[in-house]
Amino acid sequence: MNIPDSILSPAERVELRLRKLFAESGYRRYRMARFEPYDFYSAHMGFLGGRILTFTDTDGRLMALKPDVTLSIIKNYRGGEEKVSYTEKVYRDIGSSGEFCEISEAGIERLGTVDAEAQREVLALAKASLELISPDHILDVAHIGYVAGLLKETKAKSAVKAELLKLVKTKNVGGVRSLGLDAGVSSVWESLAELYGPAESLSQSLADMSLNGEMSAAAAELAGVSAGANVDFSIIRDMNYYNGLVFKGYVPGASGAVVSGGRYDGLVKSLGGKGGAIGFAVYLDSINGEEA
């Protein structure tokens, strides 16, 4: 049976094309249970970064409506090289409204060896996913290792360090300056907050600003995989879970990112697994009628 495009909503159309894209790239489909015990999620709130919808199961256990797919995939990861994709509905509170929402997500996870080739492949898929949503799109990249390296050079209390991360996330250059850090370190933080532009033209500045080996290595790794993307450190995420490349994709008209992903070896480790993990999710609800 041939289904005409006209009866599908833009989000449904994108969802089906994403499934095709992921399948053709060798990603196996993954289905997850609707509920999981609450304990499983509560241990990883830093990764989820939102509230969870809970209820009591018939046997009295506290359960959660799935807030996320990545955690479950990694929990079930048995080692080796794995490529999985999913399209699921998840439930959590989003944005400043604080209301619980049903969110449609499609995404992939690549588990095992995360080398430059793997990172390039996942970024290329993120770019191809954006292309399916809108021909006009932007992919932003950053590297958590670069920030981790810079934090080591920053002599300040942990509250100040947390504040620095918040200032970089809001591109508040003046705020960084007013903290009164060492001039050398402060200028790197200020640049990190301000920096925005094509990776090709900013790679050299990132390398030049490096204060230690960790930062240089991160800058080199980022330069090696980020062709065609923009560098923007405001997209950095929880550093306990994410460790290397992070990225977000945008299309005009959506009020936030439609693609969000990164490398989270830290999450695999915290769930008792071994190896690396990189992946992304596409937020299908933010795709509106004008695109696709």
């Binding site: 944005g95 400043s96 809001t170 705020g175 405001s234 009020s255």
Partner: peptide, 28 residues
């Protein structure tokens, strides 16, 4: 500004702190 109805806006720091809006704070 957070929802994108405006690209930029002028806003007191008090409102930013109170609302916790997810926006870039470009200039004092």
């Amino acid at each position: 500004v957070e929802r994108g109805a405006a690209d930029v806006g002028v806003c007191g720091k008090d409102i930013l702190l109170e609302s916790g809006a997810d926006v870039f704070e470009l200039l004092d």
